[in-house]
Design a binder for these strands. Structure first.
Lengths: 339, 339
DNA sequence: CATCCTTTCCAAAACGTTTCGGAAGCTCGT
DNA sequence: ACGAGCTTCCGAAACGTTTTGGAAAGGATG
């Protein structure tokens, strides 16, 4: 591996001059700069980022902490889309990405904060964490490490936040059902440790209230964002509340489970039950029936998150919160109330 | 940020002793080791990985180069599953992952080799690259940088290779169609720059040959692994070879396009055309009809790739090639030849 | 000719570790 | 009492950069 020293020897100048030449400082003669550059190219010199980081204290690296990086996570590619967005913007801004997975099974031996400290990433993007994740609280509150959170509300000097308007998304989902004539509308929510669940519940509530329909907490089921949870929730709905004709689910994945439950009991969507999901995962357009759902642009969220983080890192004065809009996609899992 | 020096001052010993105590060397008294450890914990000391790397020349980081990290790549989550596998094993082995995306649009300013050199990753895993990618050739041949390739045949002291048995996978796909009575079987392949395409074509050929059916190159269409390509291929098949009753496609994604083409022309699978795909992407089980396909375990491939790379890095003497098996999944896009 | 800028270069320190080669201080056998 | 052999510690060098604070040389200015 050729180092700056080798170049210095080869060019007959000091390492200072090499460094300053290659980094485009003005205090080196253009002729020697050119000469050094060609020598560097010839010798295939690549600056050692590790050594550089040690002195500059910057790594041009952002840590990406996703909880959904695991075998099961592949079915809905939400995390992946987010990652793609982060990656694309990071590449454009000339940052590298250090991937910290979180292994929910065995407790991490090191906290995220420790990881970030050790590896000296300049900042981090966190997604898929539970609201009261102790490590999250640590990184956000105890350190003032620059980070941006996806779908976790928190803001400060060093903490940014990107999310979608989940309340409005839920409102439009439920309004769609109301518009079709449904009045008994159940909800399959995720879990209490997700901010989006709270918001989507709030939207559900608001939409009902606006329509003059009393809120019935018995109609709220938690499916934990898992397919199996959706299955069980739909089972419960059908048995405990046979008058329900429509369901708003906080994720498409849970809808897949719910559809299975329907089918198991000899029913079909949308005839027996109109269902609107959330996320617009790839399967949503292809399953049977294709899902009416709320699309959120995870790629864009990742892209914006990377942008926001780098803005923060480079001290640009920008807002700390980004809220993207979501969009109702009407397919065939919803239909007018019949009879 | 507390450093080893701070600890030395606080503990009243030299930095050498701190270092050796924390790293568990035997030449430090157990009592002082404990004392140092508690002081380190109290002060929240985290060793600076950058500084450490500079001297040890190891980063415990592996570079992951995936071509499919982009907005379109999200539909089939192959890359993501691979990444999950890599990540899981890497975490277990205490390695970190540095993600190098490849942006196919704008040519990269730096080659992968340069990236790896600069960032001092210990090794790399490459996937989704074209056979004659110039950067690939560079990293594999000109440098002897340790890397493992996924689905790209190459082996050497520092180059490992994990793939699935694509010939056998294709054979079982075509045999399945033959077993259903089909004789005119077309193939929608990927592109010539993919090793898997060559192998799957070979398997298609072998299966036909064994069945005593002459190989007809006119029945081979290239769809470039893209949904749109599958659409066009199926269009071509229907118009140019109306006697074809079955299709073997080198990817499920292309099958989705092919199904659209069928539908557009008023046909359905499997009645008009039996189709078997490849990959078993998430959508395959949910689309209509559910796809008969060859499942390959991308997660496992990533997992094994990470294991192999680390084995190589840590000088364990293991085979350089890993071939996983694939599995025929029969669903409803194939049916016995009628009439 | 002395002075003062500019231009172009450089030596040395610093970043936070690991590691090499000792060096004290003990214990112990003789 | 003396050297051998442990145990426990340490100073200093090294890793490959960037950056600070000049310094030498040359030209312009008075």
């Amino acid at each position: 591996m050729t180092t700056i020293k080798d170049l210095a020897k080869a060019a007959g100048v000091s390492i200072t001059t090499i460094s300053r030449a290659l980094n485009g400082y003005s205090d080196v003669n253009e002729k020697t700069r050119k000469r050094i550059q060609t020598i560097a190219d010839q010798m295939g010199y690549r600056p050692n980022a590790v050594a550089r980081s040690l002195v500059t204290k910057k790594t041009r690296t952002i840590g990406v902490i996703l909880s959904e990086i695991n075998r099961e996570g592949a079915k809905d590619s939400l995390a992946f889309e987010t990652l793609c967005g982060i990656n694309d913007r990071a590449v454009e801004l000339d940052y590298d990405i250090l991937l910290f997975s979180t292994n929910p099974k065995k407790q991490l031996s090191k906290s995220y904060a420790d990881l970030c400290k050790e590896r000296n990433v300049d900042g981090a993007i966190l997604s898929g964490l539970r609201l009261h994740d102790p490590y999250l609280e640590e990184v956000v509150h105890k350190t003032n490490f620059p980070c941006v959170l996806i779908d976790i509300p928190a803001e400060s000097r060093n903490v940014g936040h990107v999310t979608t308007d989940n309340v409005r998304g839920a409102v439009s989902a439920v309004n769609h059902l109301l518009g079709l004539g449904h009045r008994r509308i159940a909800m399959i929510n995720g879990h209490d440790e997700a901010a989006v669940s709270q918001d989507r519940l709030e939207g559900y509530r608001q939409a009902l209230e606006t329509a003059g329909i009393p809120f019935d907490p018995k109609l709220i089921y938690n499916g934990g964002f898992r397919e199996e949870g959706g299955f069980e929730a739909m089972y419960g709905i059908l048995y405990q509340h046979p008058d329900v004709t429509a369901v708003f689910s906080a994720s498409d994945l849970m809808v897949l489970g719910a559809l299975r439950a329907l089918e198991r009991l000899g029913h079909r969507a949308p005839e027996r039950m109109s269902i609107v999901g959330y996320d617009d995962i790839a399967i949503a357009a292809h399953c049977s029936p294709p899902l009416t759902t709320i699309r959120q642009d995870r790629y864009e969220m990742g892209y914006q998150a990377a942008q926001l983080l780098v803005d923060m890192l480079e001290n640009r004065d920008v807002g700390r919160k980004i809220t993207l809009q979501s969009e109702l996609i009407v397919r065939q899992s919803t239909a007018p109330l019949s009879g």
